[in-house]
Nucleic acid binder design. Structure first.
Lengths: 221, 221
DNA sequence: GCCCCGCATTGATCTGGATCAAAACCGCGC
DNA sequence: GCGCGGTTTTGATCCAGATCAATGCGGGGC
């Protein structure tokens, strides 16, 4: 497994021989941009560990309203929050590569490796903390605060993956950002424009440069 | 430990001797209505298992805006989503009794009892699923849908605790409901009035009677 | 019983963000 | 380079829910 995210991912807790066990179970899969990894409600035969690319994770209402519950970056694990069926859909934003594990084999391994379970539990509680932060954002923040928090959070996430920079890549569309922040595409666009006019950010191709981190951190509180 | 929530709680996974170990660690604590269990950012010396009453779990912004991230009912475990400090505050809505465990003793026990860890992990992933559901609600649903979903969810939760009934107790204030649903108290009140006029619900002291479950389930989708 | 006092309801008005509607941009294929 | 389809930006208007402002109501203390 030529895994470039080993140190930040679930696998970081494992010994060499445990990794070999895991290797035997994993099959690396490539999903081209826009392809579906899995769909909400579908029986969860596999779980995934993203190794490259970005995926959007979302829930749909019957009338088509969409809420993106998260963006999965390299190192993220998909399959924590499901019993038999996936609780959300996932699709590739750019080209995504992922380690897929059959759920039964993965469950069996987790049973007998408490290290791995502890690591997964850490991931789950971290996700839960982020989800609660997102509830605050969705329920109580203004459009400008939402976008500011989002940009800072994305910078932070890329930084943890070894790409610390004030230039933040944004591979997702404006519509995706809107559906993540509980806004419309027009409001997201207008808010980007406003932050750019304020010289808080500079809009660059496929991303944004953060020009006034102090001010942004203050808005995000 | 005269624990009335044993079957639905974390403890359900334990054997008799493990329960005795846990008993030795627990001290039952009573919090009168409005008292604080713990505060966001405070070092987390204890974790809690609610045995009676209802607590509100919330985050505050520096300017006072509040988001309630959940209501803790009997059987709920508080202390999943924190590293060293609590990620949210909790206070008693009515009289709350809880089993408190010192965090260090609890961590040590979890280390050596994979049963308990697996159970905690189940709780965490369940919480995560609920949190994602709440994101959908906060980001994409209308006021009427929000309240309808909330009332159905509360009914479900009381039912799982052995109180199945179309009369749903609501010990929390209108302001609490507003801060949970990302609305104002006025909108919550108006929406209650509208649902009552539609004969979807009947407002009773400290709660609500659900008069048209089919219609509510349809709105909640 | 009656007076508070904190909560809830109702009413009137305002507004942030949604909706509707063009334009502008930006690859990409030919 | 040019045309074309999808995305983004900008503009004009609208409206769900917020805000501001009384009024109502219920339970506890005396």
């Amino acid at each position: 497994m030529a895994c470039t995210v080993r140190l930040v991912s679930v696998c970081a807790s494992l010994s060499v021989d445990e990794l070999q066990l895991l290797d035997a179970l994993a099959h690396e899969t490539v999903f081209p941009a826009k392809e579906t990894l899995f769909t909400q409600g579908q029986p969860a035969h596999s779980v995934y560990n993203i190794t490259a690319g970005v995926a959007r994770l979302y829930k749909l209402l019957p009338d088509g309203r969409r809420q993106i519950v998260g963006f999965a970056l390299p190192g993220d694990f998909l399959g924590l929050a499901m019993r038999d069926a996936f609780g959300f859909s996932a699709d590739a934003i750019d080209t995504v590569t992922a380690c897929a594990f059959s759920r039964s084999a993965y469950s069996a391994l987790v049973e007998e490796k408490p290290h791995l379970l502890r690591r997964l539990h850490q991931f789950a509680t971290h996700e839960l903390t982020l989800a609660q932060e997102q509830m605050m954002l969705l329920g109580r923040r203004t459009a400008e605060e939402k976008l500011t928090c989002f940009l800072l959070a994305m910078q932070e996430r890329w930084a943890k993956l070894g790409k610390p920079s004030v230039t933040v890549p944004l591979p997702m569309s404006r519509q995706d950002i809107a559906d993540f922040l509980g806004l419309t595409i027009e409001t997201v666009s207008r808010t980007f424009t406003k932050l750019a006019k304020d010289k808080t950010i500079l809009i660059v191709p496929d991303g944004v440069r953060l020009m006034n981190l102090d001010h942004m951190a203050h808005v995000a509180a």
